[in-house]
Design a protein around this nucleic acid. Sequence first.
DNA 1: CTGTTAGCGCATTCAC
DNA 2: GTGAATGCGCTAACAG
Lengths: 380, 380
Amino acid sequence: MEGRSRQPASSDDRPHAQGEPAVWSNAAMDRVRTDAGARPPRATIIDVAREAAVSPATVSRVLTGTKPVSADLEQRVRAAVNRLGYRPNPAAQGLLRGATHAVGVVVPDVGNPYFAEVLKGVTNAAEESDFRTLVADTGEKGGAEHDAALELSRWADGVVLCSPRMPQRELAKLAQAVPHLVCVNRVGRGGQVPAVVVDFEAGMAAICRHLRELGHRRIAYLRGPARAWSERARQRALRAASGPDFEVLQVPCGSSSADGRRAADAALATRATAVMAFSDYVALGVLARFDELGVSVPGDVSLTGFDDIALSELLRPRLTTVKVSKQDLGRRAWELFAASGDVGGGESGRVVTAIPELITRDSTAPPATATTPLPKTAKA
Amino acid sequence: MEGRSRQPASSDDRPHAQGEPAVWSNAAMDRVRTDAGARPPRATIIDVAREAAVSPATVSRVLTGTKPVSADLEQRVRAAVNRLGYRPNPAAQGLLRGATHAVGVVVPDVGNPYFAEVLKGVTNAAEESDFRTLVADTGEKGGAEHDAALELSRWADGVVLCSPRMPQRELAKLAQAVPHLVCVNRVGRGGQVPAVVVDFEAGMAAICRHLRELGHRRIAYLRGPARAWSERARQRALRAASGPDFEVLQVPCGSSSADGRRAADAALATRATAVMAFSDYVALGVLARFDELGVSVPGDVSLTGFDDIALSELLRPRLTTVKVSKQDLGRRAWELFAASGDVGGGESGRVVTAIPELITRDSTAPPATATTPLPKTAKA
DNA sequence: CTGTTAGCGCATTCAC
DNA sequence: GTGAATGCGCTAACAG
């Protein structure tokens, strides 16, 4: 594309670094050998058949193992396959079989360790059944979920929707358009769409109980995305736990650690003795901001998360939270998809519930005094 | 499959929770309506053609926009498409065009925030060009990379290999079998395979310089995976920086925070005044273990990371590290792939280098004394 | 057991 | 401009 030097490129594998915009440099380390487009065209099943001097059908039979083939021919075919490095074209197979052997996964944000783990769970489980995984990252934009799922549904045999933020009726409509839709952390009206969900109510209840037992009476709750089903479940638990001796102050927040960081000040302003974050990921941000403000956890305020991501026990203080097996969530979602296939798509409406477990660590303690402590110092 | 109750399932969307093994419960919330397999079969282009009373070719022309179509017919077709909710079958398109409009991404571990970000970068960039993304997670098993890439190469038009740990010759062989292979953080012999890499040498050099300026003379380095190309690059920088007044002690470690946690004690045992971790992710584990041991950072020892993952500035102390634009890495890899397509696969051997930037934060400080401090207390 | 035939859903030649 | 025919790579039905 651009001019190229004829210099044979230092034999070492060390790239040289030079400026281009910002930190990026386009090392003009041009190709060495000029065997450019000399790549042999991909072998087809016909090539293999010719090579082995058999019919394509025989090759197919050897590879799929559907019908018995004589030992002699089988050897010839295998040899030819290896020699040519033949691998069947999945698109063609899919076209014929009407199934692609792939699953789609829609996540709000792969950067969020929670979803990364769920994705990993699906991927690993799918791999065991020799299924490929397609991902779509909606960037926390609920509006993009519908289209992403619809698109993936054409590529894959089923779609796993992680924590969809879309409205209920949109989900219902989607479920009708997408053959094997499985939700994670969301159950639709009456549970028509198969789902694997965490029992958020139980989890929040456990956290509330823990806080109450420690003596907290005034709690700030950092809300997650308004449209998240899990948020509504949490709210139910909060309502149930609320009372004259257990006041829950709602603070808008979000689902990322950046959101947590931003909301930390507002949480403090409630003069609560404990802060419940929507998730561990959010709590992370809160912790950072509290530290900046010189607010000690749990000395000045207690803090809780949700999910028990790997980081939470690496943090200081180690976070009190509720443990959810994220990879299992993904794996279960996969299983739900796999099962739905067996029954021909009729078996919808299965909901699998994961019971989370309270993990008491260092970020919670009894309130320092009857009244809410204020930051020791402002802005470290 | 199992017996089902006729109970109409509580109209609420709250799943009930009951025991099964461990924390999982299979809520027997059966399907409500019995419209089981009543899903209409997916519409094909022929259905649309019939519905619009035109030929399939016309439908195709409207959808692909290759040839002009009269306004009248165009309207009829579009209406039919909407009515039927038709979406072309990508497998069929792929078969015909010989390209799938998908990229594969092979990562050692999606749970690692570094790779999650790179993956996100690829996904987002691909999406903009209307490409799908396929992922394979090799679980840090270098042996699985080759097969994963090979497999993905049949599904996708190209494959992005993230930080492959496979031996050089295996990579070379792979590059020959996979049409559009792009590496992240690895350049093969002479750079035949297009790659986008971080200039690890520059990064490590910057860290060494920083540490030396602070007065550190005895440093422990927590090694990454032996087979990682980036590790070898780091070693080069270390060798260059080493000298009588700057001693680098090597400690085997790995690439995960769990590895870091395990290696922390050994790092301490070197009696170094500063510890350089292979990555931020590793440093995370080190920090946690140090805290357990009552070793203060940077009071007793300084600690550095690499990559500047989002967490690193949320941690306390905030980690001194070297900043790498992880999403950009992914995006650039995508661009390399896209570009390689334009030139027909001949343009191999492009290497793009990202220059990282030192970020000085709170985890580094001058050494406390001339001699290495020992842990204040053992096992907090 | 093996080879031959047909067609999955689509875009793209060709004729008109 | 439009429609009818062809074939992408593969496997499932049929013959033999």
